[in-house]
C-alpha cells in the first residue's frame, strides 16, 4: 500500500481528473465536520481570545480595552479577592481531591481484583455512584451532609467525632485553623474541622468508580510472571503491591492524574447545586469555573470571563506539561 502526503495528493489530483473528483468527494464528506470544527470550536476559541481584551456584555458591541481584564485578574490574585479567592479554592479542591482519588482508586482496584466470592457485586457497588446523574447525586449529598440528621455526621459520631457543619461553614480541614481545631479536640472535645470545600472533596471521592474501572483493567493486564518472579524472590503481598502493581499501573495513574486534574478544575455542576449558584458559604465554593460562569451570565462581563477562561486554559496546559515532565521520574512504560 502506498501513502502520499497531502501535497503529493493535490499534485496528483491536479494531473488526474478522476483523483480530483475523488478528493472533492472526500472533502464534501468531511465538510460537515470541518464546518462544525470551524463554527463550534475554532471561531469561539478565537472570539473568546479577542473578547478577553474587550469590555463586552453580549448586548452592546465589544469595546477593546487591551490587557485590562488580565491586569484585573492579576490584581485580584495579588489581593486574594475575586479571581484570587477562586484560584485558591480551586487549588485546595484539586490538590486534595485528585491525589486522594488516585490513592482511593488504586486501593479499591487492588481490593476488587482479589478473587473473592461476590467480586462482581463489589465491583458493581463501587462503580454504581459513577452512573448516578450528577444533579441527583448532589441533592443526595446535601441530605447526607446535613449537620443534624445527615448520614455522614452520624457515622462520624460513631467514632466520637462531633457533628460537622459541612455545607454551612467556609473553613477548610487542611489549614492552620484545622490544625488548631485538632488541638482543641484533644483539650475540650470540640472539633469544628470540616467545611464546604471538604464536602466537595468527599463528593468527588464518592464518584471514584470511573477511575477504578480503568485501574482494574490495567491490573488485569499486568503479566502474572512478574508476580511469580517476585514471589520466588521472597516478596510478600505489600512488596508485590509497591514493586510490581504500582509501577506497572503508573502509566494509568499518570493518565488518571491528568484527567482528574482537568476534571477537578472544570468541575461545575455539583458546586452550582451545593451553593445554589452563589459560591457561598463565605465564597468558599467560588471556584474558577463558577466564577467564570457568574461573571459571564450573572454580571455579563464576557470580556473578563473570557480572560478567566484563557487563564484557566493556560494554567491547565502548564500543569499538564509539568506533570508530563515529572512523570519521567516515576512512570514506567512496559518495555522501556
Amino acid at each position: 500500500m502506498a501513502f502520499f502526503s497531502a501535497g503529493e495528493e493535490l499534485r496528483m489530483s491536479a494531473a488526474n481528473p478522476a483523483a480530483k473528483t475523488a478528493s472533492l468527494t472526500g472533502l464534501m464528506f468531511c465538510a460537515p465536520w470541518i464546518a462544525g470544527v470551524i463554527l463550534l470550536f475554532a471561531w469561539p476559541f478565537a472570539a473568546s481570545l479577542y473578547w478577553s481584551c474587550c469590555k463586552f456584555d453580549i448586548i452592546n458591541p465589544p469595546e477593546f480595552v487591551g490587557l485590562e481584564n488580565y491586569s484585573r485578574i492579576a490584581d485580584e490574585v495579588a489581593s486574594g479577592r475575586g479571581a484570587g479567592r477562586a484560584i485558591l479554592n480551586t487549588l485546595y479542591y484539586s490538590l486534595l481531591s485528585v491525589p486522594l482519588s488516585v490513592v482511593l482508586g488504586v486501593s479499591l482496584a487492588v481490593l476488587l481484583s482479589a478473587k473473592v466470592k461476590g467480586q462482581s457485586l463489589f465491583r458493581t457497588l463501587v462503580f454504581l455512584p459513577s452512573i448516578i446523574p450528577i444533579v441527583a447525586s448532589s441533592i443526595l449529598w446535601v441530605w447526607m451532609l446535613d449537620t443534624d440528621t445527615g448520614l455522614v455526621n452520624t457515622l462520624l459520631g460513631w467514632i466520637g467525632v462531633p457533628p460537622q457543619n459541612w455545607l454551612n461553614q467556609a473553613r477548610s480541614a487542611i489549614s492552620l485553623e484545622g490544625a488548631a481545631q485538632i488541638g482543641a479536640w484533644f483539650s475540650d472535645g470540640r472539633l469544628l474541622l470540616f467545611g464546604s470545600k471538604d464536602a466537595l472533596v468527599l463528593m468527588t471521592l464518592w464518584g471514584v468508580g470511573n477511575f477504578v474501572v480503568i485501574y482494574l483493567a490495567a491490573i488485569g493486564d499486568i503479566p502474572n510472571t512478574l508476580y511469580e518472579a517476585a514471589e520466588i524472590d521472597g516478596a510478600g503481598w505489600l512488596r508485590r503491591l509497591f514493586h510490581v502493581t504500582v509501577p506497572m499501573l503508573s502509566p494509568v495513574i499518570f493518565f488518571n492524574l491528568v484527567m482528574g486534574l482537568i476534571r477537578s478544575v472544570q468541575n461545575f455542576t455539583n458546586i452550582y447545586i451545593l451553593s445554589e449558584g452563589t459560591g457561598q458559604p463565605g465564597n468558599s465554593l467560588t471556584t474558577i469555573s463558577l466564577k467564570l460562569f457568574l461573571s459571564a451570565f450573572a454580571d455579563f462581563e464576557m470580556g473578563y470571563a473570557s480572560a478567566l477562561a484563557w487563564m484557566l486554559f493556560v494554567g491547565l496546559v502548564a500543569a499538564t506539561l509539568l506533570l508530563a515532565r515529572l512523570s519521567k521520574n516515576w512512570v514506567h512504560y512496559r518495555g522501556t
Binding site: W143, D146, T147, D148, T149, P163, N165, L167, N168, L192
Partner: peptide, 14 residues
C-alpha cells in the same frame, strides 16, 4: 457560636 447558628439554619432548609 457561629457553628450553632449555621447548623440550626441549615436544618431549616431540610
Amino acid at each position: 457560636g457561629a457553628d450553632n447558628l449555621a447548623s440550626f439554619r441549615q436544618a431549616d432548609q431540610s
